[in-house]
Amino acid sequence: MLNVPRLRILLELQRRGTLAEVARVMSYTPSAVSQQLSLLEKESGVRLLEPVGRGVTLTDAAIGLAAHAEIVLRQLEEAEADLASAQSAVQGTLRVASFQTVVFAIVPAVLDLLAAEEPSLTVEFDQLQVVAAYDGLLSHSFDLILGEEYPGMPEPVRANIDRADLAVDPLLLAVPSEAAWLPSARTDLAGLFDVPWAMDPPDSATGTWARSVCRAAGFEPRVRFVSPDPLMHAHLVRTGHAAAFIPALIAANQSDGLDLRALPGRPDRTIYTAVRAGRGGHPAIRAFRAALASTAAARTSEWNTADGLRIQNGLVTPETSLAP
């Protein structure tokens, strides 16, 4: 009988390419990974690895076995989900990775809701960007991740991933309510060609999208502040040091000192959850996704109150919906 943990090591080697990377994501030593793969070769009776320089490559037999391993691991997760569904309460620990704006704007309310409805479920969070989060999801470090997709930048389709869209979040232009470098006549994006900007790093999806929006408006932004932190962007705008693009999810509670404006075409990002394909039916996943959806819907409803925001005539003002 083939050993399932060793099959998982083989699958990780196919995904990551080196023994060192497998050791890193699985918290083993490279020698331990090598030893387990040698044992798997003995169990299978065929050669699985070929040396290439200082590394190894998978044989055709190993590639076929890795494909079977993926199916086996998915079916085992489905079995675990079925067993968990037979229990009277949702329980255990759910490991989640998310980018910052969701953690800041939605997650506390989600945790409050789950504490009331599913008190036996513990949720643990790591704040990570999407690529690193997917890396952890595939290596079983996380059970669920939250990701974001920007206009014109579709996320790659990933095999054996169960993705569910959660919310559509409008993207807004933020400028200081008062700044000497911002004449009141500048009311559109094209008029901000020579102002300082705060943006995400250029190699991130958010940073790439932000720069493309400015270029589409006819200028190269003068990016004076580079940070992946949208709260820092909002603070730099509020204190009169920069213009920035702010998601509505953040802007709704950070609008003091900001003039918020609609962007050409009213772009938005899609926020989604992703789990491994065999994990989607697990009660903890279902409960967490339901709490996220409920909280996101409530947050959208809040935008329809006096504490919310409204886009009207290109300006974003308090009091009603963000919907165009």
Rank of each mutant, 00 (worst) to 15 (best):
Q14R: 15
K42D: 14
R8I: 01
R74N: 10
E43C: 02
L48N: 06
R15W: 11
D60C: 01
V25N: 06
Q35D: 06
E50C: 01
A69E: 05
G64A: 13
V52S: 09
V33F: 13
P51I: 04
I9N: 09
G53D: 13
L11W: 08
G64E: 15
E78N: 00
E78I: 08
R6M: 06
A66G: 02
T59C: 05
E70P: 08
L7M: 11
E21G: 02
M26H: 11
E43K: 04
A61L: 12
A69C: 07
G45V: 00
V25Q: 10
G55T: 03
V56D: 00
A23L: 01
S31T: 12
S34L: 10
A32S: 14
E50F: 01
R47S: 15
L11E: 14
L40Y: 05
P5K: 00
A20M: 05
L40G: 08
L48T: 05
V33L: 05
V25W: 13
A23R: 04
E77F: 01
Q36W: 04
L76K: 09
Y28R: 11
V56P: 00
L39A: 13
E78H: 01
E41I: 01
R24S: 12
R15N: 02
R8D: 12
E41V: 01
L73T: 07
G64D: 15
A23W: 02
T59Y: 05
V46G: 01
D60S: 14
R8S: 11
V25S: 09
V4L: 14
L11C: 03
R6A: 12
E43R: 04
Q14Y: 08
Y28H: 10
L49R: 14
R47M: 05
L39M: 11
M26Q: 13
I71C: 05
V52C: 07
A20H: 08
R47W: 01
E78P: 03
L10D: 07
T57R: 15
E77R: 15
V46E: 12
R47H: 10
A62H: 02
V22Q: 05
R8H: 11
R47Y: 01
L7A: 01
E41A: 13
R15F: 02
P51H: 09
S31E: 06
V72S: 10
R24T: 08
S27G: 04
G53K: 11
L65W: 10
V33N: 07
V52N: 07
G53R: 14
L48I: 07
V46R: 13
V22D: 08
L48F: 04
V33R: 10
R16S: 01
A23M: 02
L11F: 00
A62T: 11
P51W: 03
A20I: 02
Q75F: 08
E12M: 14
S44K: 09
Q35K: 13
R47N: 06
Y28G: 02
I9P: 00
E70G: 15
Q14T: 09
V56G: 00
A20N: 09
R15I: 09
S31Y: 02
L73V: 12
L73R: 05
S38C: 02
L40H: 03
R15C: 00
I63W: 00
R54D: 12
A66P: 06
G53A: 13
E78S: 08
A69P: 05
Q35A: 13
